[in-house]
Write a protein that binds this DNA or RNA. Sequence first.
DNA 1: AGAAGGACCAGTGGTCCGTA
DNA 2: AGAAGGACCAGTGGTCCGTA
Lengths: 262, 262
Amino acid sequence: NTNNVLDALSQGGLSEEPVQQQIEAAESGGGATWNIVPSAGKKIKKSKKKVQGRRKSAASCSRGTDNDDDEVGDDQSGQGGRAERQREHPFIVTEPGEIARGKKNGLDYLFHLYEQCAEFLSQVQNIAKERGEKCPTKVTNQVFRHAKKAGATYINKPKMRHYVHCYALHCLDEDISNAIRKSFKERGENVGAWRQACFEPLLALAGRQGWDIDGIFSSHPGLSIWYVPTVLRKLCHAQCSNLAVVPKSVSSFAGATTSHSY
Amino acid sequence: NTNNVLDALSQGGLSEEPVQQQIEAAESGGGATWNIVPSAGKKIKKSKKKVQGRRKSAASCSRGTDNDDDEVGDDQSGQGGRAERQREHPFIVTEPGEIARGKKNGLDYLFHLYEQCAEFLSQVQNIAKERGEKCPTKVTNQVFRHAKKAGATYINKPKMRHYVHCYALHCLDEDISNAIRKSFKERGENVGAWRQACFEPLLALAGRQGWDIDGIFSSHPGLSIWYVPTVLRKLCHAQCSNLAVVPKSVSSFAGATTSHSY
DNA sequence: AGAAGGACCAGTGGTCCGTA
DNA sequence: AGAAGGACCAGTGGTCCGTA
């Protein structure tokens, strides 16, 4: 029950941060412990956004065990008026199994976040089914909100979307993914460079499947819950059309979309 | 090519309204002709809403035949400054095969609109695939927009959503659907009463399938492209839970959600 | 400089309610 | 009164850019 509860809070203190049961549920059950927690807080948030309002009418129709579920948490707003949660430590390129040292997080931890999100989605789906509400099939805003309420404040949409294609490569060809991690670690590359490098083997893989990136995502159970990133979709389409049209945000690839290395 | 192009424009004039090729494509190919067109125009619209802007970047990546597709139409705004399209004639309860007379539309026509939407969705999907964009699986706002641009100005979201469950019953058990139409026509009931009556047999049907209304919709090809109406979902859940919680908008059913007639 | 994520924005699902 | 649908609204997908 309490084994790796502290995954999210191991190095770096902030132990007064309430640890939610929901995080335990979202933990996959492995044994690893990563260093995750950011530098000590010093900022005081002000807005506190009490929006979210408008409880759905007729919410009383479910009975028994499920009547709160979405209401967990509500804490992380200035408990003692002091420690406000800070940014996560930045990622560094680590090899499989390697724990990042210092104020850094490793890539095993990054991929672990995707699995936590899957578990949070599963919780949201269960709640929705109990209540007879529309049931999401993807990691939506609602899931991110649920994760946050459940205390997993280190999970957020921009981060997860940013690295989806890296996780995709990890799912679809772990050997290649691992090889790239090792090579980029050796070369001392930063996370951004590693992230960019994950596109190429994914594209090669997609090419072997008729460039059907949606099909590739939806066929893999761990991947099917993630939206296909726009950039990846565009790269696949550009490759398929053999046109060197590359969106601005991957312009470091520009001119190399046809057959050369990139 | 030109056989039932005028389905949408048969009785009621307004022949100066441009008939779009896209409508032809969206016609299912049957032979029936309904009376659809509203009373002659007299209102002048003012806003004209030229929004929609922001063409997606890198739109040039598709080649050949598809480069406009979303741009069709653009006409129906005060062509000669005169006839502005008016409301559709209201629906009346008709038996299968019966043509509504006077300034009315019949239920075969209503169901035909659902099939036109399916065809418009299919067109939107083809365009999206050609362009390598995200491909909708349901009748979304984008599809309604496409339908409107293609000249099918009589299709709109509130109307289609309003009668989805009636179409569902028509798809899932045409015999029962037809029987209700005949009976309600005989009794001289209005469309609202007929619409309400469509819930009950649908619920009975859902009960036989474990109240899995999402599963029922997604298993039927013509139905899977429609969102399950919120009211129907709530009714199924209430029945499943044997609780008499009925949303306000179907309160004419109130007190009858457990076992009695309704 | 490289990176994390709050917060914004255009377009969505949903449907109310002013209209005819 | 009964009904059609413009138009609004809360919450979405997507990601920029002020922040650290």
